[in-house]
């Protein structure tokens, strides 16, 4: 570079830039992770809100759907098939609105139906999408089912309504940086939403 006039502003600037070129690079290297973090954090935050919103929506729709479709059945086979069908359908719907997250829906219909089963107790219908007596594929448990036998408030509700359907939606989400790094089970967010109809 030719410096024709060392005292000029331009020359001064060029001289300063030349001497601080490495500094800017170093600063930039420092700043980049922070910027990336902020960008990813913003992205993730939006994602989490979206998942929360989706899970509330799916819970409501699943409970309504299960209530309308499956509540009349008192026999095991068609009832299970109906709940299974509703769950499959809602999970397909969920897959359309949720990306990069796993979803488990636990559907149940609880009914106070003396005469068909135990005349003294409401009839808990086994929630679907879980191993009998165990947890779902993603490791969730129904929060309602363990309470249904002894909990007075829930039993009152069943007896008052004669039946209701519940949907418990569990969503498991792994943040994008976990996925980028390929680290499994490093960090994940679980969402739970339920709805009663």
């Amino acid at each position: 570079m030719i410096r024709s006039n060392p005292s000029s502003c331009v020359g001064e600037h060029n001289s300063a830039d030349a001497s601080e070129a490495g500094v800017v690079l170093v600063e930039f290297v420092y700043v980049i992770p922070v910027l990336l973090f902020l960008i990813i954090a913003g992205f993730e935050f939006g994602n989490l809100l979206h998942l929360k919103q989706s899970s509330a929506f799916i819970a409501k729709e699943s409970a309504l759907y299960a209530y309308r479709e499956c509540s009349p059945y008192h026999d095991d086979a068609p009832r299970s098939a109906c709940l299974f069908h509703v769950r499959e359908r809602m999970e397909r719907l969920a897959e359309g609105v949720i990306e990069h997250a796993d979803i488990d829906i636990i559907l149940s219909v609880y009914r106070d139906d003396p005469g068909f089963h135990d005349p003294n107790a409401p009839t808990p219908i086994e929630p679907l999408n879980k191993e009998p007596g165990g947890e779902t594929d993603l490791g969730f448990n129904s929060k309602i089912e363990p309470l249904i036998v002894n909990d007075t408030a829930l039993r009152d509700l069943i007896q008052d309504r004669e039946l209701f359907a519940t949907a418990e939606v569990n969503i498991q989400y792994r943040p994008i940086f976990v996925r980028i790094l390929g680290v499994i089970d490093f960090a994940k967010f679980d969402f739970y939403e339920m709805s009663i109809y």
């Binding site: 935050f45 989490l48 809100l49 929360k52 509330a56 409501k60 309504r161 709805s195 109809y197």
Partner: peptide, 25 residues
């Protein structure tokens, strides 16, 4: 704003479901 706003938003979404169930019932 992000944390509490997110909580407010989530709580609002969840309680909309409770209100729906209540009106239906």
């Amino acid at each position: 704003l992000a944390i509490d706003g997110g909580r407010m938003y989530s709580a609002s979404l969840a309680s909309q479901n409770w209100a729906d169930s209540a009106a239906f019932s």
